[in-house]
Simulated assay, not measured.
Amino acid sequence: MEKMRTACETYFLQSLTLMLTLLSGISTMPVSDADSLCSALSTAKYRLTFTGKWSKTAFPKQFPIYRPPAQWSPLIGVTHSSDYHIWQENLYASNGVREFSEKGEAWTLIKEVEAAGERIQSVYGLFSSPAVLGGTGQTSTEFEVYARHNLLSFIVRLVPSPDWFVGVDSLNLCEGDQWKENISLDLYPYDAGTDSGFTFSSPKYETIPQDQIMQITSSFPSHPANSFYYPRLKHLPPIAKLMLTRIKSKLVFSLPIEHTQSNLIPTGNEIDEIESLINTPLDCEVSAWSPWGLCKGQCEENKKGVRYRTRYIHIQPANNGAACPPLEEERACVPDNCEGGSTP
């Protein structure tokens, strides 16, 4: 299975590279007045670094350890104008976002981006970055922007998950006539609104009718089975981080560069940052009580029997969360096989 998954990812990236080459010829034309706020005279080149912070200490509830373990899909990014969105909170996900967030399949999403570039000339470039084969780790890529298409959007799928992802929508990289030098953002999970699963490994169950894209919080969805439901927390810790660093260049009005992809090995400071994640307390969760069992004991004067009921642990406590309550109770009774029957 591992070899098959690796082969599929290799095929995905090879095919995506071909598509990016085709999209690099998308024409650029004046767009909305909002974009005129950026008056930079040159293009800008950025390095994007995506850092996964999905660890068992930060997110202990139902943390996926195998089949598959916690990891991140390839990143799909777009530089564009204000009249295009790859996804938006509180609006419905497109078919491309649905397929990507549920299955990690990017073909429909790429076609949607390509169509937007041809129809309204709102897309300057499409780029990708390799998957992160673990909940914590990094991936990086480089891309280029210019004044008329100064916004960045991207999406990365949580694997495994029903339809959950992280990303940014229309991040402005320009301020007046200057490109921003460095940007750092914490990232939080979103629900695409297309699948109704509550846990990372839930079976696929289509949401009918489709819901809008919503940010997942420690209390939303407000269901105890939800993998991100931590009622003791006011806010979830960030599950990922975005770092953008401008790369100095003397090129002016250059054509789109060939996009590069690379996996990064975290530095010592970055490893320390990943390991110093918030230890989210996870309280013990137990089942409902079973029915009372049969009353057992000897039929002798002034002697009573005992009956029991039990419950079991749904989720073990972690990170100093509340301990589990007793899992067994007993009650005195008159044995069932004695005259007079049993007491409740």
Rank of each mutant, 00 (worst) to 15 (best):
S140T: 11
L233C: 10
A322N: 06
Q212M: 07
P64E: 02
I216Y: 03
I247Q: 08
E273C: 06
A58F: 00
P237Q: 10
A34W: 09
G176K: 13
T139D: 09
F63L: 03
G117C: 01
H223D: 14
I265F: 14
E2Y: 11
L236N: 00
L236H: 03
A58R: 06
S219K: 09
K3V: 07
L171M: 11
N279L: 07
S276G: 11
S342V: 02
N226F: 15
T43G: 11
S219W: 14
L18E: 11
D272N: 10
N302L: 15
K204I: 15
E285K: 13
Q212P: 05
S201Q: 09
I315P: 02
S128N: 05
D33F: 10
I213H: 03
P344I: 08
N269E: 13
S128Q: 03
K304V: 13
N226C: 12
Y188E: 04
D163T: 12
L236E: 04
Q316G: 03
R98F: 12
E114P: 07
I247K: 08
A58H: 02
R47T: 08
L152G: 01
G167Y: 05
V123H: 01
V334T: 13
S290H: 03
D283L: 03
S39V: 13
M19H: 06
R67K: 10
L41C: 10
S140K: 12
